[in-house]
Write a protein that binds this DNA or RNA. Sequence first.
RNA 1: GCCGGGGUGGCGGAACGGUAGACGCAGCCGGCUUAAACCCGGCGGUCCUGCGGGACAUGGGGGUUCGAAUCCCUCCCCCGGCACCA
Length: 820
Amino acid sequence: MEQSETERYDPGAVEAKWQAAWAAEEAFTVPNPDPSAPDTRPSTYVLEMLPYPSGELHMGHVFNYTMGDVLTHIRRRQGMTVLRPMGYDAFGLPAENAAIREGGHPREITNRNIEAIRRQMKRMGWAIDWSREVSTAEPEYYRWTQWLFLRFFEKGLAYRREAPVKWCPKDQTVLANEQVIDGRCERCGTEVESRSLTQWFFKITDYADALLDETALLESWPERVLTMQRNWIGRSEGARVVFEVQGSGEKLPVFTTRPDTLFGATFFVLAPEHPLVTALTSGTDHFDEVAEYVRHTAGRSAVEREAKEKDGVFTGRYAINPVNGEPIPIWVADYVLMEYGTGAIMAVPAHDERDHAFAERYGLDVRQVVAAPDGAAPEQGAFVAHTENEVLVDSGEFTGLPAPEGKRAITAWLAERGLGEAAIGYRLRDWLLSRQRYWGCPIPIVHCDACGTVPVPDDQLPVLLPEVEDYTPKGRSPLAAAEDWVMTTCPSCGGPARRETDTMDTFVDSSWYFLRYADARNDDAAWDRQIVDYWLPVKQYIGGIEHAVLHLLYARFFTKVLNDMELLGFREPFSRLFTQGMIHRHGAKMSKSKGNVVSPDEAVQRYGADALRLYILYMGPAEQDKEWSDAGIEGTARLLDRIWRLALEVAARGPVEAPAAADLVRAAHRTIDRVTDDILRRFQFHTPIAALFELVNEIYKVKDDPARAGEVRFATETALSLIQPYAPHVAEELWERLGGSRLWEEPWPEADPALVAAETVEVVVQVNGKLRDRLHVPAGTREDELVSLALASERVQAHLADGGPRKTIVVPDRLVNLVS
RNA sequence: GCCGGGGUGGCGGAACGGUAGACGCAGCCGGCUUAAACCCGGCGGUCCUGCGGGACAUGGGGGUUCGAAUCCCUCCCCCGGCACCA
């Protein structure tokens, strides 16, 4: 067919036409279950992490949401009702910083960004239920964030206390531990400082074990995410051992994972922040030196503390080792951290590298108390690494016990005498949720001189974010400047009171948004439990790996708490999780500062949304980082162009029946099988596209043969049906031109197993595992026949030793291996 | 240091113990065209070759197996997480 006669493929026009049709029909809106008319169709919930509306969508979003879109279309066409919502994580620092920089209200900036993103999403043609859209910064949403906070507060799971916290001097706010990366602020990269402040916390540590153990309830989460969460929670089993200060009898408990090395403790170390440091030294000769060390240490950042050689000072006091009554010197050193364990340690320099380094520097005793079973004599004073099957030595009545038994025996011995007990340490800290910034959800609390900390009653929610003149962070919340708003009456006694002026971490907002989607327009409650239990847990969650210990840990914590409150009927929010790789270009993550960003708008403008959707998923395995290629997208654009021209030719010829088992009919069934299996069983999105390339290539080889018009039509229709989840606009257009309608509701094709199997197969003949010949035989040829055909081959005979094969291995329809 | 994930042509990658390199990009050859682009068809691991074919190839070494990119051991390298956590 001549090029000039063919109507050209114009992605812009085709895409606009079908986007308008889907919007007019509300094609992807799903109603909530109606108890009087139960829907018998199975339901599923496909969810992608909601975008932060910072400016516009980037390729990572396109990747994420297109993957979810493919699943949504296939599940819908398989007859399921699919909840596939979208919203905006709309509070947060970038909008507020932009307001400070450029003027304007953070709300205006945020809403402008939301509009831009929504327009881009619609331009991509994603099958979203827009009736459930939420923005976490709207009062209709954050009212319920506040309501949830109050439920946590009632249970003692949200509390206020003074504690050492991480402070970002640039953003002028405290940060959660999860938001500090290598001692720096996750947002701006500034080195964080330590401050002691009164702040709000969520008691996530109460759920440390549940967060670890209940991963067993998860159907499919990536190993790397589970590992990161496990590392983050950092559970370690050991013992609490109580030392006493010689002379005064004050108790100094320590946490150790190695109670078996207790006889090797030769000194004792307190963190400089330890509350007993002053009491132990006051009035002694050591007071000035210790006080000077503590002062000096306070000026060091966490990064500095770790980088330097270990140092410390002797207090002049001694602690009594409970197992042998031996006094050991008490030191103060900043390699011991106040935040972990009890802020004090027993030092066992023979078996701990840090203690060993410290002992070497200050000439302290090193005493070996565990040894390899062969009993090789160690060097005096040396560090002895952990080995297998080690046994206790020089440990009083416990000498000779294998180390694990020694651990148990010594812990039991201490417990009997009230000198210690088995204990578990966690790295996880409570979640610091308050922020000294404007653009966040107000904490619904009132401070009253008479009544103390008083929750705002539910019927007074939402506590609206007040208007202020100046958003600039000054170390206290900008909300404090709204005097009229701050001054209020105490809900308890009616007297004058002041509102809490801190706002919540935005990760609080996103810890429950997936629940709100299920019942997004409910004005009477955060959600209706029946409806939420109908849709959740999320059957497939998709998002970036960067949230492995932030959002994904917090959302799990929220779900468990809400389940304990009987507000939900499940304990894990996301049954299956998929974490996608990042999109790189020129070898680095796409970023504005590197100037290597390709905007989705550019690509859509040039090649159309369908070509971009195909290419972004064709680049490689979804879980790996991928390299964007400007030329690569032309390949998928070409594929769509080929399909376009093919379908118009087929349409022009009119309907023709396909012969039942023609070659292309078989090829089409094989493709159905591959595409469906790859996506649904293997969660692989790129190989189905390769299969579609192959099918189209095969059709092209014979499309001009009039005798094969029937099978060409069948294979073309199948290709359109299979490519629809990836390229829904062009597939829909061509489906219509072939006389069909509403492909997005057409049942997903099923492969006929009889047609998937090939009629003739190529059987490989190997001699001693090396390929020597190929046989083309009917499928199902008997084994003995395959062997005699193989033996008859000259090429095989040339490699076969005299006397024929010693052994033959036959894999039917695949291979014959002759072993000589 | 501990934990997790990787290492296959010029590039992205495929191969679910059984034909290594599917498919795409780039490249090369031919057709179409006045010409170019588009489009259509074809060729692409390395080395040797008597042009029939042969040898070697999936980070290195070893093993299991009739058969290993795939499973096991070991070493090297890359990416990510945790880390003065007692």
